[in-house]
Amino acid sequence: MYASSMADSPWINPDHLVVAHRLKMWYPVQSGLFSKTRYVKAVDDVSISIGKGETVAVIGESGSGKSSLGRTLLRLYKLNGGSLIFDGKDITKASESSIAWFRRRAQMIFQDPFSAINPFHNIKFILEEPLIIHGVGGSAAEREEMVIRTLNEMKMNPPEDYLFKYPHMLSGGQRQRIAIGRAVILRPDFIVADEPVSMLDASVRVEILTLLKEIQQKMNIAFLYITHDISTAKYFSDRIAILYAGKLAEIGPYRSVIKDPAHPYTQALIEAIPDPDPSNRFKDRKIVGGDPPNLINPPRGCRIYPRGAGSIPGVHLQWIYAEGKNRPWWRSRTAYTLLVGCT
């Protein structure tokens, strides 16, 4: 039913669980009482779709709009344009009271495990609260059973030890497990994980990523994994979307984007990341300088050209598709890498 109108963004699949078509989310900025409202175009014409049980990583620098995109997909922000379809139902303009079902099926994991959970509540209540809000689990005993099951799934053993603890008694990694548990206890279909491991130490980071992957496979949850770190995305994602200054720069299967990045910005992003190698210290990285553009008055045409990464000033947005060389896309579709605004 939506397929025809989405022909302009062929990389999205209208049958996917989450379909966002030409999504726009602008923050209004009022500089003076009578001055015209201007907008920070945090998400500007982004189309993306996520299949059931699929993980899409969204990579971008700070201010690229990756968190805004995640929150917009959960409809935590009002859209300024485009449409949002979840499981075949259009929720673009649906009232908050009419999408309680969506709230239950779509959850979020936040970056900072120290501020995402309420310090005044014990672990049992923190995990039980979503059940109470959504009226899941008839009796208190049933809910407690679900809480214990979730603690088990989060590998917090034995669960009874944790039920009456408070967040301050837990380490960062354990807190993040609780935050993840709170997101999965309702058995959602879709989770937006906003930098879930960036505040954690290297070893704990791997532990949490492994846990997320396990949960995703076991419960068949679609993930939007927001991160600035391409190298962790590798261990968790099927597809990868590169965001730059509110625009989608490149999207494709993880391996083909990393092995063969088409967009100059993706190339720069990959070049910027060191692998542990003692010979790194003898060579400089070939990196463009400069900073991302101001999103109130973004440059016309390709938004990366002011940083001189290879594209031509004044070229209007163009959609170019690089046909993948028969690389399997997720669930065996022909792969392609999408390029936006680069000739």
């Binding site: 990341i273 692998d275 542990p276």
Partner: peptide, 27 residues
């Protein structure tokens, strides 16, 4: 980097994601 000896260093190296090579992460 090529032959870490202490079990902690080995563990830490095992948890560093690499972009280019294939490696299974451990924790």
């Amino acid at each position: 980097y090529t032959s870490p000896k202490h079990p902690y260093t080995i563990g830490l190296m095992g948890s560093v994601p690499t972009l280019r090579g294939e490696k299974k992460l451990t924790f």
